[in-house]
Design a protein around this nucleic acid. Sequence first.
DNA 1: GCCGGTGTTTACCACGTGGCAGAGAAAGTT
DNA 2: AACTTTCTCTGCCACGTGGTAAACACCGGC
Lengths: 344, 344
Amino acid sequence: MAVTQEDVARRAGVARKTVSNVISDYPHVSDRIRKKVLAAIEELGYQPNRAAQNLRSGRSGMIGLAVPELDVSYFAELTRLVVQATERRGLTVLIIQTFGDLTREHASLNGFGHQRLIDGLICSPIASSGEDILNRGGGFPVVLLGEQVSVAPDHAGIDHVGIDNVAAARTATEHLLSLPRKRVAFVGASRSTDSHMADLRLAGYRQALAAAGVPLRPELVFSVNGYHRRDGAEAGRRILALPPEERPDGVFCANDLLAQGLMRALHDTGYRIPHDVAVVGFDDIDEATYSIPSLTSVSPDKAQIAETAVALLLDRVNGSDEADHDTVTDFSLVVRESTAGPRR
Amino acid sequence: MAVTQEDVARRAGVARKTVSNVISDYPHVSDRIRKKVLAAIEELGYQPNRAAQNLRSGRSGMIGLAVPELDVSYFAELTRLVVQATERRGLTVLIIQTFGDLTREHASLNGFGHQRLIDGLICSPIASSGEDILNRGGGFPVVLLGEQVSVAPDHAGIDHVGIDNVAAARTATEHLLSLPRKRVAFVGASRSTDSHMADLRLAGYRQALAAAGVPLRPELVFSVNGYHRRDGAEAGRRILALPPEERPDGVFCANDLLAQGLMRALHDTGYRIPHDVAVVGFDDIDEATYSIPSLTSVSPDKAQIAETAVALLLDRVNGSDEADHDTVTDFSLVVRESTAGPRR
DNA sequence: GCCGGTGTTTACCACGTGGCAGAGAAAGTT
DNA sequence: AACTTTCTCTGCCACGTGGTAAACACCGGC
């Protein structure tokens, strides 16, 4: 069934190893032999056995990409970019969804209980702590995406790529305050698992309030169970349960999906956006451009994140760079309809 | 560095093969030895080498899932379900994005130029023809998702899972006609690549018109370059370029993203949905529930599709089922705001 | 005490490939 | 002409595992 180098060698009338040499572009092979071997490969339709290559070489040619969920558009968009950056370098990406589950994150950090499945991992951690990541057992390099996880001072061989979440959240909140809006809420504090991402964005929100001399009102910080549209809608309903005079006139959401769900819930009760409530999201997913109203959002440079992460990881995989990198990527605030103009 | 069965065996004072037996739950192993071996595994942190297992067993434990693009929400949602269904059976999914590119689809059908990378493939083809799929060289079973690709009569060892696209499109169009709407357009005919999916949905649209005795107006069939929001928005602008009396009062879009882009473009010019134009989408992605207005959509039973596809594929991988299956899964029409009520 | 049976452990081999170094031939040097 | 160097090609080995079957130990029965 399967054609091996042995079969090709027989067909071409050479040694099996010569076939291997042709394939791996070993320089000292005569043109005559090379042609014969290539012809035999063509005729027989030989394809290398990845498992054997992998076993022999110790490389799988795959890197892992662990993201929480692909149906969170931000990660889908980022995944696409990471895959493209990796393929450009001739490798394959094994995409793993962790669903924010600690067990699954550990599994990915430990190589899924298998050696040599992946040569390296790009991981966007949710539940894992710094220690979890340091204690990884996979034996392969790791690049962390997104929020900076506090690991040991020397990072211990782990790279990081992501934007400055605190600064970005501060920028978003300052934008709401400048419209001006008086009662600016934060939606997306973490309720169940402790999400470092949420902590950082909440910190930026607080910094902006403090800088503007606005007292933090705990009743305007809304926790969520997750970061999907339904969780945003649920937060919206909690906002509407407040007495009218206590409701916010501006909301900064920890991600765009929350914002979309929130806008939908507010819309159901006749609230106008941005007229009654201005909304800012985070991630700048494609939907933010096209939703009604379109959504003002913090836009991380996803292409830069993907490209940097892949480059750093492969440098480590190839052993060409041992230093620890902590790359801070760019972001911008894209202003759209959801924050256009002052209140009333 | 890497701990092998050999190391475990030395530690436990047994033969290497005994370690292998313990791991593969060979029944005739004494408790005393089993405990010793398991203890040694624990102490040394042994992890099986996947490449070696793969090489020896001829199984990779991975199946491929080839979808056009993960940032098309329908595929992201479907991917999640396929991954969950596969993991429940103890296997891993290698997710591949083909971007509707023929070369990439061929690569996936042929196992990416490598043997034994995947044990089977679930493929959602866009560009591939029936022959392309029949001439696959991967040597592993394939399950096709989505539109029925016309392959040879006996299917030649290929399963298919998907809804009846024609019937679903007819249902959607009939819904628009029943509101009633007089000028019902179709958005999503394929412009560049020939998309079988688009052909089928267009066919359903035509059937519904014919059944209602409504003549097909070619100027109400809009082609697109792709199936993203931007393509829907572009179609919307072409609709707005028509003289007002020629514009449709109902639009059936080939997928939800087109519908979202279309609604956005119409909204920009002050069109009210469903007041002026009723819109129906296809896929029932999460966004359809939360958008403003929420979107009436054909809802394929994605969980059923994923579950069936994985079950069929693994039956073939395990050799337990050789018959060709063509499973037609359920769909429903979920009516929401975008088609609520008659015109004007 | 020998024997078949059952339970437990082990030795050997093969999966397909790449690294290494050696064999043989051709070319260049003294 | 003999010797070195360079170029081609080849054979051997190991990667870590699971399948097959042989070896060994123990047990009960005649």
